[in-house]
Design a binder for these strands. Structure first.
Lengths: 106, 106
DNA sequence: CGTAATACATCGTATCACGAGGTATATGTT
DNA sequence: AACATATACCTCGTGATACGATGTATTACG
């Protein structure tokens, strides 16, 4: 899938991945895999960005002798998802414009 | 609207704007305005990129004493739009993931 | 004993949208 | 005549950002 098309959805995808339950890097990647493929370097960049924007908080906990960094969504994070849903209406209208007059001879 | 969310749609929007009829920079911006706002610097960057990718060809013609540069979509350009339509299915599945479990308490 | 899986992180690069700035003509407006 | 606005083109620098490459360390499997 085109990289550019994913942009703008990735941040919200990560937020959605921790929406119902705190999660950690490795698990987020696996959970998102069926929908979007993203590399570790991309994920950690995004997580840092979201933390800086106060959309999530972090907590480190031990699991099987290894340290795991858990990410917890904030109210601002939830609001970001809501905002995305509002913006989606515009996205759809752009899509409609692009495919306008295409269906007939498809 | 979020800049990132527009990315990946802009190229295809410009192609869609010249899909049925050759057009020129100034007109493309005005035609797209109801759907996406994009600056001249952005448009000309995109047009250059699309020309380099052989998705459109150019032709300069005089109109009212002023020169206009007309853009004409190629077969590759049409195929790009078709590809976008296929990719859209993935976009929708990502969207579904993000809003999953949100409708109930909305 | 090596390889994969788990789990974290950083750095450099390439792509790209956009604001700021520049050029030039035609059409109002005062 | 002077000035503003609309039309029409273009370039350069900057900031945002996705990702490959790379590095560290532990656990599990064969």
């Amino acid at each position: 899938m085109d990289i550019q098309l994913k942009r703008g959805m990735l941040d919200v995808c990560v937020l959605a991945a921790i929406k119902d339950e705190d999660s950690y890097g490795y698990k987020i990647i696996k959970d998102l895999k069926p929908y979007v493929e993203l590399s570790e370097s991309t994920l950690y960049t995004i997580l840092k960005r979201l933390e800086a924007a106060s959309m999530l908080t972090t907590r480190t906990a031990e699991h099987d002798g290894r340290l795991r960094k858990y990410y917890h969504i904030t109210d601002a994070g939830h609001r970001r998802i809501e905002e995305f849903k509002r913006e989606w209406k515009e996205v759809i209208s752009i899509y409609q414009f692009v495919i306008k007059g295409e269906e007939e001879h498809a």
